[in-house]
Simulated scan of single mutants.
Amino acid sequence: MFRKVTGLLVGVVLWSMSAVIAADSSLKQNLLTAADTKASGEYAFSQCRALTGQVFDAASQKKKALIVGDSYACDFLNSVQENGYLGDYQLALRFIPYDCQTVAGDDAPKHIAAKDRSFCATPERADSLERAKAQMQEADLVIFAFRWKPDIAAALPQTLRTLAFSPKQRVVVVGNKFFGQISVRKYLKMPANDLKALENEVDPEEAKTINAVLAKGLGKEVLFVDPHSLLCGDDTSCPLFTDDVNLISYDGRHLTKEGARYVGRVLFQRSALGKM
């Protein structure tokens, strides 16, 4: 009997060790996959490219939602699609590269660097607020999601007035997010419990400060969603992993597939986005 019990205990211990090793191996593989900037970059932009320039179907009974922005708009789109949000809407996207980010109105060219003006003025290469304005007027819901530059954030209230949305339209502004420097080699050496609790100190100028400018300037008729506040709290440090130990961002700014799923749930469940 003693030998049988001992053998059983040894078997349980070996099985437990095998399970731990397998889980650790799976965690590391998931981490390496998520941190592959080429693969994750392709994921980040694939759906964005598919919806860029999409026109609304006038015969559809669905409401119309237009996402306007740069690579952060792609992240937002992925966060929506990974969770099945905004299912009552037709979705379209107008992609305005970060270097082409500007205000609406006559001052627009002044906010674009001289070296980028030719690129930004070419419709085949970059969209613009002016070219997107007609589709904005069609939409029931317009969502702006950029990696906001300080001067553009400060001028956004005037930009929105210039775009002249009707009272029936819903306008959402999604602020900046930033997760700091990503160090995969470091994470591979850490146990899962430590990764769950791991946070990066981040430069407040990247998100916290700019989001404060946005929040102060936008009126009650615009829904402002602050990713930094929702994901990181009132601190200047942000989590790097989801509760089930998946890397949120592969480069500090853009989201992995699991990161998009996680961030989408946070943004929609903890803000009025969930009521759209």
Rank of each mutant, 00 (worst) to 15 (best):
S26D: 15
D244M: 13
K196F: 10
V171K: 06
N211V: 08
L214N: 00
L31T: 01
A212P: 03
D251W: 05
N78V: 02
V202P: 01
Q90I: 13
R261W: 07
L247G: 03
F179E: 02
L218P: 03
W15M: 12
Y72T: 05
S128Y: 05
S249N: 07
L247H: 02
T122I: 05
D251S: 04
S118L: 13
T162Y: 09
G53R: 09
L163F: 11
L255M: 10
G252D: 02
Q54Y: 04
C120H: 00
A19Y: 11
L188Q: 09
I210W: 01
C100G: 10
M1C: 09
D107K: 10
R117K: 15
Y72C: 03
H228D: 09
K186S: 14
R49E: 14
A155K: 12
S229G: 07
V68K: 01
E206Q: 12
D107N: 12
T52A: 15
F179T: 01
R261N: 05
V171D: 04
A59H: 11
L9D: 04
V5M: 09
W148Q: 02
D88A: 14
N30C: 05
V80I: 15
L77T: 12
Q90Y: 11
A272I: 04
A121L: 12
V13K: 10
K189R: 12
S166V: 09
K177A: 15
A19G: 06
M190G: 07
A108Y: 03
K186G: 08
S26N: 13
R117Y: 08
S79E: 04
F178G: 02
V202S: 00
L218R: 02
